[in-house]
Nucleic acid binder design. Structure first.
Lengths: 211, 211
DNA sequence: CATTTATTAAACCAAAGGTACAATAACTGA
DNA sequence: TCAGTTATTGTACCTTTGGTTTAATAAATG
């Protein structure tokens, strides 16, 4: 009986992987169930054997993506004992993560409404909100560490500051994508360079002294 | 013959006013042509007498909204000779503007794709892009003035910095809306207070010394 | 009264999520 | 092996939503 379960897990995984690719490319709205079926090489009906609805697929991807984001951030935070180097690693991790999983990033930053339709919180949604909170807590702790190290101003309320920082960076990330060609043309910067400058600018809002 | 033209102008204005109310309330995506027709007290077919498509309606509102935003920003910038006071006025103007015309704000900040479908730039789109540029130029000049006054760091490249600032603030504005209840519950702040703190944080990234 | 113009109800069409069902494959127990 | 049962899936279809078009009706004009 375990073989059967493993098989369904395999199929669910294949479908989710296909959906993830498409979501990264076109977003959840513009990706249809037919698209996912084609990409995963199943029929549409088969999708509904393994998932109840499109929303369940989206939520599953949101959750796994946010768990991954949390892990990446944790690794970045732990990667350097020097706070400033860790800060750079965190920003880089965020920018990279957006490339691979923009949907999850948008959910994590609150750029996307989490409660989809009018109905109440559905299955899996509470997990998503929990991970979102954990990410913000992880960042808040990182900010506190920065204050303890003397790297950042200590008057800043950690939770509020992290949320502000988090949303500011997400705004930059979005604009960088929307206006990539404009930025390239007018400023002569790649998206990565532009966002690196953005991260520097935001860093200046946290630090005691200017660079 | 001028009476007839005035009449069509009147009808176009009524339709646009209705659409603007609905867009502010529900966004352009969730507002249907039926909604607009009902709100404007015309039949849906009549909308197509005065406008070629939904997109034309959206673009018209985007344009007028962005012209208004430009005016508000200009007024805010001119309102105080002290740069810091003017800065506060600018941020306040932005936050207020978002309440009344979120669609235009999103277009101005690049949170929304401006070229809608795959086709090339349609009628009116070039106007929108032009006003968008003018707004950024106005803000860039304001930043230069701040540098001349000694209020902000002078090493900052104005155009790039304005775009970064602009997008960071838009991210905060979005998060503030999406998570209004969370912010109220956890931080005990209203949306306005939260955004005011955000504006302060961003100000610190521009200034020479910290407050 | 005839002709043009303005308005709109109803029809049309496409997209997309979701479902029903029949055909096929796989497995089970004699 | 084979008959019967179960699971899987491809096809066609249903339903809703929403933008757009058409054709008929009402109003105005001269």
């Amino acid at each position: 009986m375990s073989k059967k379960q493993a098989l369904t897990e395999f199929h669910r995984g294949s479908i989710l992987a296909a959906a993830e690719r498409l979501f990264a490319e076109k977003g959840t709205e513009k990706t249809t169930m037919d698209d996912i079926a084609r990409e995963a090489e199943y029929s549409k009906a088969t999708l509904y054997v393994y998932f109840q609805s499109k929303e369940e697929i989206i939520n599953a991807i949101l959750l796994s993506g946010m768990v991954l984001l949390k892990k990446k951030l944790h690794e970045a935070i732990e990667s350097h004992s020097d706070w400033f180097q860790a800060y750079d690693a965190v920003c880089q991790a965020i920018v990279r993560f957006y490339d691979e999983n923009p949907t999850a990033y948008d959910a994590a930053t609150g750029s996307i409404p989490l409660t989809q339709d009018g109905d109440a919180l559905q299955k899996g949604m509470s997990d998503i909100l929990r991970v979102s909170d954990e990410i913000e807590q992880e960042l808040a702790d990182f900010l506190v560490r920065g204050a303890a190290d003397g790297a950042v101003r200590s008057q800043l309320p950690p939770v509020e500051t992290v949320l502000l920082f988090w949303s500011a960076l997400s705004g930059m990330v979005h604009t960088a994508e929307q206006r990539e060609s404009y930025i390239q043309r007018t400023l002569g910067l790649t998206r990565e360079e532009y966002l690196q400058h953005g991260a520097r600018l935001l860093l200046a809002s946290l630090t005691k002294a200017n660079m």
